[in-house]
Amino acid sequence: MRLLFLNHNVAWSGTFFRAFPLGRALVAHGHEITVVTTSPTARIAQRRRRRDGVDLIETPDLFWGRGRTGWDPWNTLHRSLGLRHGDFDAIHAFDCRPAVILPALFLAARGNLPLFMDWADWWGRGGTIAERPGHLVNRLIGGVETWFEEAFRTHARGTTVISRALEGRAVQLGVPTDAILNFPNGCEHEGIRPHDRERSRVALSIDDDAEVVLHVGLIYPRDIELLFGAMQRVCRERPRARLVLLGNPRTPIPQERLPADALIIPGFVDLDLLQLWLGTADCCVLPLSDTICNRGRWPAKLSDYLCAGRSVVMPRVGDAAEWIDAHRAGWTSAPAVASLSEALLAALDSGDRASEAGERARRLAEGPLSWSSVAEGVDAFYRRVLLST
């Protein structure tokens, strides 16, 4: 099939990391995939290129910052008119921001094409909007965000979701259960590989006897409170414990809550350094407070942890913890400071069991959660839905 994927994010950010690797895996299944995403910088002209067998189009956008996330009328118009002569068999819209859903509906109607919609974040009604900084902006756009998130769901012939929470919400909006596929984000296990702990620590000047707990990327305010509350106890009981925060957490870091030598903040790093830092870790942590936002999402950083072959410590919130428990790839806890701290202490005190959990994590990344395996399920879903209609 010739499939058009529409994504609102700037290329190489957000849900692009769901649409593009899925498209690349589907190419290996014999499909022709075009992924349309937003250019990081262009304001007038689009950029088109081939990447890993995928036809990648970056469309221009006149906005900046948080505005450059699918709200621009020029981006929307450029996609609608620029793609109207495209030769596609089906369209898959990844989330429902205007620059995705409006071109999708227009192109589907114009070409009488089947439309699929993906739902990968719980935005409105107490979801992601409520967790992010900038309460005034969030209040102003919250109603519009929720309307776009919900209003068009029954227009799709097939719906894909990232969690059971979003599956339930889709059903409440009138989407038939037999037209829904729940699939997690896959793992790019060929791009991120396990690195030797000792060599990684030598390369990054980390003491061999340090007990490294590592976190990657974005963290919401309530989640960072959970993490630092747990790490306070861990550092009291294990003075060699170190918390490494990689990337941009996009929330203030309460550095005063931990001893100065217990917190390492490298900031944003490239892929090679990311793999080295992952290699230093005794365990990787995924702090999730029990919020609507966290129940509805699949944190992308989990894939990095699994690919790196590191044991995972996380609360039982959302669907991801069930995979960790089922495959014995780490330790799970209740979404509370005391419980998360106990899970972290258990991981740091486990010796060889942490390494064994990391090996199982890597097998999970190479097997059921590889993008190739995920794409098989999506491919079968496309064919089932199209045959039934």
Rank of each mutant, 00 (worst) to 15 (best):
R193G: 05
R193V: 12
P194W: 11
H195K: 14
E198W: 09
E198K: 12
E198Q: 10
R199V: 08
S200E: 06
R201V: 08
R201I: 08
R201M: 10
V202D: 11
V202Y: 10
V202H: 13
A203H: 10
L204V: 11
S205M: 12
S205F: 12
S205L: 15
D207S: 15
D207A: 15
D208Q: 14
D209Y: 09
D209V: 06
D209K: 09
A210V: 03
A210D: 14
V212I: 13
V213Y: 02
H215D: 01
G217P: 01
G217S: 07
G217N: 08
G217H: 07
L218Y: 03
I219Y: 04
Y220L: 11
Y220H: 05
Y220E: 09
P221W: 13
D223L: 03
I224G: 06
I224Q: 09
E225Y: 05
L226T: 00
L227C: 03
L227F: 02
L227E: 02
G229V: 08
A230L: 02
M231C: 00
M231K: 04
Q232G: 11
R233L: 12
R233W: 13
R233E: 15
R233F: 12
V234K: 07
V234F: 07
C235I: 10
C235S: 12
C235P: 08
E237N: 14
E237H: 14
R238D: 06
R238E: 10
P239M: 02
P239Y: 07
P239S: 15
R240L: 03
R240M: 06
R242Y: 00
R242G: 04
L243I: 08
V244R: 11
L246T: 08
L246H: 01
G247N: 09
G247A: 13
N248C: 05
N248L: 06
N248E: 14
P249M: 09
T251K: 06
T251A: 15
P252M: 06
P252D: 12
P252I: 10
Q255I: 12
Q255C: 13
E256F: 13
R257E: 14
L258N: 04
A260W: 09
A260N: 13
D261N: 15
D261T: 14
A262K: 07
A262Y: 06
A262L: 00
A262V: 01
I264C: 12
I265G: 00
I265S: 04
I265W: 07
P266M: 01
P266D: 04
G267K: 04
G267I: 10
F268N: 13
V269Y: 00
D270Q: 05
D270V: 01
L271Q: 15
L271V: 12
D272N: 08
D272L: 00
D272C: 03
D272W: 06
L273H: 07
L274T: 03
W277K: 04
L278Y: 01
G279Q: 02
G279E: 00
T280S: 01
D282P: 01
D282T: 07
C284K: 04
V285R: 02
V285W: 01
V285Y: 03
L286D: 04
L286C: 08
L286H: 00
P287C: 00
P287F: 03
L288C: 02
S289I: 01
D290H: 14
D290I: 11
D290F: 13
T291P: 04
T291K: 04
I292N: 05
I292Y: 05
I292F: 11
C293P: 03
C293W: 14
C293E: 15
N294I: 12
R297D: 03
R297A: 03
R297G: 02
R297H: 07
W298L: 09
W298I: 05
P299A: 06
